[in-house]
Design a binder for these strands. Structure first.
Length: 157
DNA sequence: GCCAACGTTGGC
DNA sequence: GCCAACGTTGGC
């Protein structure tokens, strides 16, 4: 299967890129996704070896801060079964886990955030999901062309 | 803090 | 299965 590209959203208050840098092996479990469309991609489409833009939402500014690599493809999210977790879902069971996650590892932190406004102003990214109004999906596919365009942007920073 | 856009819930 | 009400997301 060819390598695919993704954009994962996260709030810096929740788990920042500095947290990821300090994490063991600079990797983390991408737990807590509770949206079916995003779940389906985590379960079925995101594969080990795929690359991911780490995107800050609810940040000033919002934007892409790093590149990560998927180090473990979709498996059941145990926080759904944990009553003490903020991500607990009473409808999830061991037999029918409902929610899935992947593991990612930091590959490259950008010297500075690439703000959403820059993405919106960059030719070639007009149709990118994250630049569309009302784009709320927290796991988004990125096309190879969009990926390349953003990597080039980062090189010129 | 505002509010538009979107997803989910639940009554019917 | 429809759809109004509600809750959440996320840019600004």
């Amino acid at each position: 299967m060819p390598k695919r590209y993704w954009l994962f959203k996260n709030e810096p208050d929740c788990f920042s890129i500095e947290d990821l840098e300090k994490a063991p092996n600079q990797s983390t479990e991408w737990e807590g996704v509770r949206n079916y469309q995003a779940r389906n991609m985590l379960r079925d489409d995101v594969q080990k070896g795929d690359e991911v833009f780490y995107y800050y939402s609810n940040a000033k500014p919002a934007g892409i801060v790093a590149v990560c690599t998927v180090v473990k493809s979709g498996y059941p999210d145990p926080t759904a079964l944990d009553p003490n977790s903020q991500y607990f879902d009473p409808k999830a069971t061991r037999e029918d886990p409902r929610w899935y996650m992947v593991d990612v590892k930091l590959k490259q932190k950008f010297p500075d955030i690439i703000p959403l406004a820059t993405l919106k102003a960059t030719p070639g990214l007009e149709k990118m999901m994250v630049t569309q109004k009302g784009s709320r999906l927290s796991i988004q596919p990125v096309t190879p062309d969009e990926w390349k365009t953003i990597i080039e942007l980062a090189k010129r920073m």
